[in-house]
């Protein structure tokens, strides 16, 4: 479904060019759910944005559904295959567009027909219902906003969803709802997920395999089962697992 080979991503122009990702390589099979974990600045979100075509400066190879992507632009077919859900639902919805306006515009851009029915269907799919159709973002809670963002991503009927920390801005109980929703949608629509998170337990819950990143490089790729068992081949992975297990009081003399 998605193949990334030797991906290097940078920001800015030559003398002060900053390279955020160094030679990342991984593949996603159709229907798979793959995680990227790492601490802040490890380049995990940058990879997502480069795949989505939001960052122009990259080299290497990005192949979606068998088609190589060019660095500077993406075509209509790409947008119908790949969609993205952003981290902060407070920043990813236009403050002056109602839910209806957001979804209608998206559907129109994607060249869909029967827009009215589709909007209602999308809202039902993400568990909001039609009562939410004419609300503005400020009338929605964080979890509801994220559901709208997911509905927007689903509007194009994509097959690959890029999930950029979709629950890190939400309360834990809302996080559970959104994670369940994402799992259900994946089953129903046969979606492939590429999910970024700093939370190992969220990735372990959602993904089949994951890549651990540190300072722009992929340290190792391992099955989620190994992560649960605390078996990382690399010391950094083990360190990360230990640190996220929570706080341990230090030994006191």
């Amino acid at each position: 479904m998605l193949s990334v080979a030797d991906l290097t991503v940078w920001f800015g122009q030559e003398p002060d060019r900053v390279t955020a990702v160094h030679g990342a390589t991984f593949d996603l099979a159709q229907g798979e759910s793959f995680g990227l974990v790492g601490e802040s600045g490890s380049g995990k979100s940058t990879i997502l944005r480069a795949i989505a075509g939001l960052i122009p400066g990259w080299s290497g190879r990005i192949t979606v559904d068998g088609r190589d992507q060019r660095a500077d632009r993406r075509d209509r077919a790409f947008f119908r295959t790949v969609q993205m859900v952003f981290q902060d639902p407070y920043a990813s919805l236009h403050p002056r567009h109602s839910v209806d306006a957001v979804l209608a515009e998206t559907l129109r851009l994607q060249g869909m027909d029967r827009i009215d029915q589709r909007i209602v269907k999308l809202l039902d799919d993400v568990g909001l219902g039609r009562g939410f159709r004419f609300r503005y973002p400020h009338q929605l809670s964080g979890g509801q906003r994220q559901r709208v963002a997911i509905a927007r991503a689903l509007a194009a009927e994509p097959r690959l969803l890029l999930l950029d920390e979709p629950t890190s801005a939400l309360d834990v109980s809302v996080q559970a709802e959104i994670l369940n929703l994402l799992a259900d949608l994946r089953d129903e629509h046969g979606l492939t997920y590429l999910m970024v998170s700093h939370d190992l337990s969220v990735i372990a819950h959602m993904c089949d395999r994951l890549a651990v990143m540190q300072r722009g490089r992929i340290v190792e790729i391992l099955p989620a089962a190994n992560l649960r068992a605390g078996q990382g081949a690399q010391p950094y992975t083990t360190h990360l697992i230990e640190a996220s297990a929570g706080y341990r009081p230090e030994a006191r003399p």
């Binding site: 209509r76 515009e105 994607q110 927007r152």
Partner: peptide, 22 residues
């Protein structure tokens, strides 16, 4: 650089649409 502009871009919105509608 807001996420909602990136999201609209991912729907294939052109420059004029982003400018005028968003």
């Amino acid at each position: 650089n807001a996420d909602f502009i990136a999201a609209a871009r991912l729907q294939g919105a052109g420059r004029f649409r982003l400018l005028i509608r968003h």
